[in-house]
Computed example of a mutant assay.
Amino acid sequence: MESKRFRSAVSILVCLALVAIAGGRAHAEKIDGIVAVVDDTIIMVSDLEERMKELGAPADSKKVERQVLELMVEDIVVRKIYTSLGLPPVSEQEAQDLSEKSGMTVRDAGSYIRKAALMEMMVRSRVVVTENMIRSHYENQPQYRGRDSVRLNQILIRKDSAKAARALDELNAGKPFAEVAGRYSDVLSSGSADIGWVAVEDLSEELRASMKAEKPGDVVGPLSVSGYTAFYQLIERGVHGARPLEEVRNEITADLQKKYQLEAFNHWLKKMMSQYFIGIYI
């Protein structure tokens, strides 16, 4: 009964505020009205504007405005749950320290600390990552399988067509690529022409096309690359960067735990929010 009276009182308050806002607009006056209510907590237009400004959000986007307001509502609910469970208040210093380390605002840092504590208490111990989940994730993530790659020697000559022509003549004459690179290349990797393995998909379109039919030992060039005349020699092809399951097991386990803990927490929080009177009026 008291809950019904409370909700009725809040509804009346909100209606009066909305009428005031409408009247203010009709007279081209800015009224600081209510944009949301969470039980006995009210969010005003000025609160939303301040939060938008703090986040650097575009003031003219209604979609973004709504998203920011929903985050503010969620943060109020999290505070209420956190307090109701008797958890220790987040100190200003604690929030400040996290803010400095992470780059987030002090307000967001405090919210993060409260959510992390609730996640630890409510869902973390309930999330179990099984062997099948680990293997399925490993088998379906291309970064663990490695990528088609080429290992290349490289010569880069900066804005010197005569020098590039001499290098090309020596390469055509069959001189060893490494020797020609040592004499003519303006850029060497640790004193060597060998630039290591490069994923085929990371090559420029021109170089990828030129390398398509080449065999180890073949030379491609001259090509224009960022102000340089470039020559490349294919050393070998292969799948590079593959990582065995045992090497990445802990990494995958941690990633899956975070993923499913967050999903479980968001589900739990959504259920908890349904227990509060929440009104959003934009």
Rank of each mutant, 00 (worst) to 15 (best):
E120D: 04
E70Q: 11
R158E: 12
V150I: 06
S111V: 09
A109P: 15
G110T: 10
D108S: 08
K53S: 08
G56I: 06
K53H: 07
A95N: 13
K63E: 15
N132V: 11
S149Q: 03
Q93R: 14
S111A: 08
D160L: 09
S84H: 14
N153F: 02
D97Q: 08
D75K: 07
T130K: 08
E139D: 09
V73A: 12
S102H: 09
E70I: 11
E92P: 10
V150W: 01
L98V: 12
S136H: 15
K159C: 07
A57Y: 13
R147K: 05
E120K: 01
T83I: 11
L71Y: 13
L85S: 00
P58S: 15
M121C: 03
S61L: 14
D108H: 07
A117S: 05
S136G: 07
L156R: 07
V129A: 01
E54V: 01
M104G: 07
Q154C: 12
K101Y: 10
Q67H: 10
Y144D: 01
V123K: 00
R66I: 08
R158G: 13
E74G: 15
M133S: 09
R66L: 03
Q141D: 10
L152D: 11
P89K: 02
V68Q: 10
Q93H: 11
V106H: 01
N132W: 11
T130R: 12
R147F: 03
S84A: 04
V128Q: 12
L98A: 12
M121T: 09
R107I: 14
K62W: 12
M121P: 07
R147D: 03
P88S: 00
R124W: 10
N140W: 01
V78N: 02
N153A: 04
P58F: 13
K159M: 14
L156S: 12
R124D: 08
M119P: 00
M121R: 04
S99A: 11
E54T: 04
D148S: 01
Y82D: 02
E94V: 15
R124A: 06
M133K: 06
P58M: 15
V77W: 12
L152K: 04
Y138M: 10
D108C: 07
R147M: 06
I134M: 09
Q154D: 09
A57G: 14
I81Y: 02
G103N: 06
N132A: 06
A116C: 04
P142W: 03
E70T: 11
D108R: 07
V68T: 10
Y82V: 04
R135H: 15
R114F: 11
D160P: 05
N132K: 14
H137M: 05
M121A: 14
A117L: 03
M72Q: 07
K63W: 08
T105A: 03
R151L: 06
K63G: 08
A59L: 09
P142N: 00
Y82I: 03
L118Q: 01
Q154E: 13
R124L: 10
Y144F: 13
I113H: 04
L87A: 00
D148T: 01
Y138K: 09
S161N: 02
I155M: 12
K101G: 14
L152R: 08
R126P: 06
D160K: 14
L152M: 07
A117R: 05
E94D: 10
L87E: 00
R145I: 05
R145Q: 15
R124V: 08
P88T: 00
R158F: 15
E54P: 00
S125M: 03
Q154P: 14
G110Y: 14
K159W: 08
G86F: 04
L55C: 04
L118N: 00
Y144M: 12
